[in-house]
Structures are given as C-alpha cells and as structure tokens.
Design a protein around this nucleic acid. Structure first.
Lengths: 178, 178
DNA sequence: TACTAGGTAGACAGACCTGTTTACTTATGT
DNA sequence: ACATAAGTAAACAGGTCTGTCTACCTAGTA
C-alpha cells in the first residue's frame, strides 16, 4: 500500500477508536494525518470505503497477534487455545484498547447487508474457526463456547473497565478444555 | 410521565435501535412520533438528554424482564440464575433484538465521563449484582463469570446472528453453578 | 368569557457533513 | 529537459444536524 494511503488507514483507525465512526469526520482524519482531501478521495471512493479498509487491516492485525501467541505457546508445549486469551489480556491492558472495532462498527452500522456489518461477522467467524483448528479434536460447539467467552471478556473490559476480564475468561476456558 | 414525553422515549428507543444513536436525527424521531420539535425541547434539553431518558427506561425494562423470569423460576422451584438466560433467549429470538442498547451506546459515546457511558456501566453492574443476589452463596467472582457469559451471548447473537447463543451460555452457566 | 397549559407548524441560525473541482506544486525517471 | 505521477490548498455545492423562536391553535377550567 502507498505510504499516504497506509498513513490514512492508520490515522483513521486510531480516530475511529477514540471517537466512534459517525462522530469522526473526514476533516478530522485529514487534519490529524496532514493529508489533503483530494488524496483521500483518490485512494478511497467514500468514507465507508475507508472504514472498510480500516476494518480489513484490523482484521489481519488481530489474527496475526493471536497467531503469534499461539505459535509461542506451541514452542513452549503449551495450549494454543488458552494462549489466545493472553493476546486479549495484553490488549485490554494496553492504552490502545477502545473495545472491539467490529462490535463497535456493528453498533453503528445496523444494516445486516452493509459490507461493514458483513466484515464484522467474518472477523468473528474467523476467530472461532481459528479456535476450532487449535482444538485437539475439532469441535464446533466447543469453539463457539470459547468464542463466546472471548466476546464476553471484551464487553466486560470495555463497558465496565474490568481489565483482567481475559484472565477470568481464560479460567473458564480451562474447565471447558479439560 | 406525560404521554407525549413517554411516546417520544418509546419512539426514540426503537429508532436508536434500528439505526444507531448518531445516525438517528431528531427530525426522524419527530416525524415518526408525530410530535413537534418545540414539544421535544420542552421535555428534554438536548438530544443527549433524550438518549439518557431512553437508556434509563431501557435499564428498568431489562431488569424487570429478568426479575419476572427469576420469580417464575422460584415459583417452580427452579434456579433463578439459570432463568436469567431464558430472558435473553426470548429477547434474542424476538424481532425486537438489535443488540444491547448499552453496549451500542458505549460504542458511540466513547468518553468514559459521558453520562451515557456511565449509565451503561451502571446497567451492566446492576445485572451482575442481581446475579450475585441469586446465588445460594454470594460470590462476586462467580457472578462476574455469569455476567461475562451473558455479554458473550449478546455479542454472539448480534454480530453473528446466532440466535440460540443464550442457550449455549446457559449450558456453560450450569457447569459453573454445580 | 377569559385565562392557562400544552401542543402545532414552520422558518431560521449556525455549524458540520461528505464529496467535487480547480489550479498549483513537487519529485522522479528517462 | 520534460513527461508523468502524486500531492497540496482551498473554495464550493448540497445536504443534514441540533437547537431556537415566533405565531398560532386547541381544550379545559375558574
């Protein structure tokens, strides 16, 4: 991706997190990124398209972060599934946590047919698929249960500020696996 | 509450659910409720104040719905805690489900000091308190774990359209209680 | 009859929104 | 030296947003 385009996506991600999607105007993104409006509209046809690019990038980021923790766990002979919760624990306790971009996007873009809504569904599904592949024996039900624990931890951390929620969820996941 | 004021709150609740908070303009609420703008601004000082009234009412509604299910369960000699999940199951499968108003509000109003954000926190905390009081022996940790399951079920139902998520969560809660 | 409470319609201000367009500037590679 | 690609600044169009205000309209009641 061209550097300005990438810079726009990075800036927009931060601002969408800090203020929400509707509340973040194009002009603010331009002012913060110091990119001109003409450039933004050369790279993206609309604000919605920029949002999609932001979510697409975030999707990749999150899955890579999780995969890194899984790989580390495997190297140490530990459970990959439980390591996923460490990724979220680290995220919740960083100063980069403003809730899940996809949950937040679904809250603002309510139309199920909206591509923004669709990418959120795909993200959530991808995480459950990844969990399923980490289970010693594939088990859709168990993967969904663990996925549910992750979602619960995210909401608990975001709406109630309970930063250690990922560890609470991890304990619950332990009992599910054994 | 005066009938027009109540009607405004009811209409606004539906529209905020259908379109989100920022995306729902005052004018749409007025058109749908057939109330004049002057009347709205006599009852509410601002849109934010209307949102707060909506959330306040929703807060009461949800707790009452849960309490009804708990009472019914007690009458049948069943677990009050598990009955809470039936409330959510019923909600998810109604045509009145657009995710949790409070999770959605927190997504749009990101400032933790915002009263809209504060009421969301209080709502979530109230549910956990209610759970705690239903436990045979009070247990903050267990109440939070069950609260986490509920949040997870809500997100699963909303972002992935998995309408039976409350029953998945209920099964997990059974193992927690016993 | 006349006052009052509550409501209506609609114009208006002022700000902010997305998106387009024009004319100018820089940098790079041949 | 010159074409091309990429970026800039700024004005502009056409909406939409919240919130205010004026003038009018009922229905009930003292």
């Amino acid at each position: 991706m061209q550097p300005r385009k990438q810079h726009l996506v990075d800036t927009a991600l931060l601002l969408f997190n800090q203020h929400g999607y509707h509340a973040t105007g194009i002009d603010l993104i331009l002012a913060e990124s110091k990119v001109s409006k003409a450039t933004l509209y050369k790279h993206f046809r609309s604000k919605d398209e920029l949002i999609l690019a932001v979510l697409q990038q975030r999707h990749t980021q999150v899955l890579e972060m999780i995969q890194t923790n899984i790989d580390d766990a495997h190297d140490k002979g530990e459970s990959g599934v439980l390591a996923i919760f460490d990724t979220f624990d680290h995220w919740f306790n960083s100063d980069n946590f403003f809730g899940c971009n996809f949950i937040n996007a679904t809250a603002e873009y309510t139309n199920v047919l909206d591509p923004i809504n669709k990418i959120s569904l795909e993200h959530k599904q991808a995480i459950v698929d990844l969990i399923n592949n980490e289970l010693t024996i594939k088990d859709d039900m168990k993967a969904n249960q663990i996925g549910l624990l992750i979602e619960g931890a995210i909401v608990m951390a975001h709406t109630r500020g309970i930063k250690h929620s990922a560890l609470i969820a991890k304990e619950m996941a332990k009992h599910l696996i054994h």
